[in-house]
Computed example of a mutant assay.
Amino acid sequence: MPNTPAKILYIDDDPALGRLVQKVLGRQGRDIIHVTGADDGLERLKDGDIDVLVLDHYLADRTGLAMLEEVAARENSPPVVYVTGSTEAAIAVAALKSGAADYVLKTVGEDFLELLSNAIEQAIETSRLRKARERAEREMREARERAELALAEVNHRVANSLALVAALVRLQMSAVTDPAAKEALAETQGRISAIAGIHKRLYTTDDVRFVEIDAYLGNLASDIQATMSLDGSAADIRLLAEPLRLPTDKAVSVGVIVNELVTNAAKYAYRDREAGEIRVKASQIEPGKIEIVVEDDGIGWMGEGKIHGTGVGSRVIAATASGLGATLAYENVARGTRARLQIEI
C-alpha cells in the first residue's frame, strides 16, 4: 500500500505564490493545502490531519507570530515552518522562541522553494522521531505500571503467607513446654514478622524500589512491643527517625538487624532489674550514608565476651551486616548498650 502523502497547510496571503508552492511541492508527493488568512488556517487545523504548518509572517488579518502563539497553545499542534520576507533576525528569533521548528527566508526564485521543501522534510522527520520517542516512553511507562501492579500483588501474597507462617510458629510455641524451645520459636517468629513487614510496606507504596524506612521501623517497633507485652516484658521501645528511604534489598537486611538488636535488648538489657527504655534512632549522617542506633540503659554489652542465650541472634546480626556491606560497632557508654549501624545507600 503506497504511503499517504504528507499534508502541508500553507498560510500565505499571496495567491500566486500559494499556487506555485502547490504546484512545485505537489510534484514531490506532498498534499499542499493553501489558505490566505490566519482564521481560515486555524479552522483547517481543527481537522487534526496536518503534518506541517507553513506560516508566512505578513498576513492580512494578523501577523504570523500572533497566529503562532495560538497554534503553540493547542494540544498536538503540527510542527511549524515560519516563512518571512524580512531580513530582520529578530523576527526569525521570535518565531523560534514561540515554537517554530524552523524558518525560511522568502526570496525570489527557486532557492526559496528548495529551502522550503528541505525545511518541511526536516520538520516531518523530527516530528516522526518525537512521536516515536513519546510512544516508546508511553509504552515503557505502561509496562512499568503493569509490572509494579503485578509486583505489588506478589508482595501482598508473600506478606500474607509470611504472616500465616509467623502465626503458625506462635501457635506451635504455645504448645511447647521446654523454655529453650519456646525462646527459639519466639525468635524465629520475630524474624519472620520483620521480613513480612517489608513486603507489607512494598504493596502499599507507590515505588517498590524503595522503602520508607522510618515508617517501617515504626511498624516493626510496634510489632516487637506487642510481642514483648504478650511475653510479660515491660521494656518501652521509642523510635526517633528522620524521613528516610532505603532500596528494598537493603531495607530487608536493616529490618532483620534492628529486629535482633531490639529483641536482644528487650530480653537481656534489663535482666534482674526494673525494665527501662530501648531507643531506635535513624538519621542521615551525610549524603549517601545513613545510620541506625539501637541503645538501652541496661546492664551493658560491648559486642564481645559472654553471650546471653544461644548466640544465634548475634551471629544473624554479624552475618546480615556483612552481607549488607554495613559497619556495626558497639560503643563504650557509661550505662547500657549502644549499637551503631552505618549503611551506604
Score class of each variant (00 low, 15 high):
residue 214 D to V: 09
residue 244 L to V: 07
residue 226 A to G: 03
residue 273 R to V: 11
residue 212 E to F: 05
residue 231 D to E: 15
residue 266 A to T: 06
residue 239 L to W: 00
residue 224 I to Q: 05
residue 254 V to Q: 00
residue 217 L to C: 12
residue 215 A to L: 11
residue 272 D to G: 03
residue 239 L to A: 09
residue 245 R to W: 07
residue 240 L to R: 13
residue 224 I to T: 08
residue 265 A to N: 01
residue 268 Y to D: 04
residue 252 V to G: 00
residue 242 E to C: 06
residue 231 D to T: 10
residue 274 E to M: 06
residue 266 A to Y: 01
residue 241 A to P: 09
residue 210 F to C: 09
residue 216 Y to H: 14
residue 267 K to P: 04
residue 247 P to V: 06
residue 218 G to Q: 14
residue 257 I to T: 03
residue 270 Y to R: 03
residue 261 L to F: 09
residue 210 F to A: 07
residue 229 S to T: 15
residue 246 L to R: 00
residue 231 D to L: 14
residue 246 L to V: 08
residue 267 K to R: 15
residue 214 D to C: 10
residue 241 A to T: 10
residue 236 D to K: 08
residue 242 E to Y: 02
residue 224 I to P: 03
residue 259 N to G: 04
residue 210 F to T: 11
residue 226 A to I: 07
residue 209 R to N: 13
residue 219 N to F: 11
residue 260 E to D: 09
residue 240 L to E: 15
residue 214 D to M: 13
residue 252 V to A: 14
residue 224 I to K: 01
residue 257 I to D: 01
residue 247 P to W: 04
residue 248 T to I: 03
residue 234 A to D: 14
residue 219 N to I: 08
residue 232 G to P: 02
residue 210 F to G: 03
residue 211 V to H: 05
residue 268 Y to N: 08
residue 247 P to T: 04
residue 228 M to V: 02
residue 209 R to W: 03
residue 215 A to G: 08
residue 253 S to K: 15
residue 246 L to K: 00
residue 234 A to C: 02
residue 238 R to P: 05
residue 224 I to E: 05
residue 233 S to P: 00
residue 250 K to M: 10
residue 268 Y to L: 07
residue 270 Y to S: 07
residue 253 S to V: 01
residue 255 G to R: 07
residue 214 D to W: 06
residue 243 P to G: 09
residue 268 Y to I: 10
residue 248 T to D: 01
residue 221 A to K: 11
residue 275 A to K: 10
residue 223 D to Y: 04
residue 231 D to I: 01
residue 256 V to E: 09
residue 243 P to R: 11
residue 246 L to N: 03
residue 229 S to W: 02
residue 262 V to I: 07
residue 254 V to N: 02
residue 241 A to W: 05
residue 236 D to I: 01
residue 265 A to F: 04
residue 264 N to I: 07
residue 271 R to H: 12
residue 210 F to N: 12
residue 249 D to N: 13
residue 272 D to L: 07
residue 239 L to M: 05
residue 223 D to K: 11
residue 212 E to A: 15
residue 218 G to W: 09
residue 250 K to C: 03
residue 218 G to S: 13
residue 267 K to G: 12
residue 237 I to L: 02
residue 251 A to I: 05
residue 244 L to I: 14
residue 213 I to Q: 10
residue 216 Y to P: 03
residue 216 Y to G: 08
residue 244 L to P: 09
residue 264 N to K: 10
residue 261 L to Q: 02
residue 261 L to K: 04
residue 268 Y to F: 15
residue 220 L to K: 09
residue 262 V to R: 07
residue 235 A to V: 02
residue 260 E to Q: 10
residue 261 L to C: 10
residue 230 L to K: 03
residue 270 Y to M: 09
residue 244 L to F: 08
residue 228 M to F: 10
residue 247 P to Y: 05
residue 254 V to F: 08
residue 247 P to H: 04
residue 246 L to I: 05
residue 231 D to H: 08
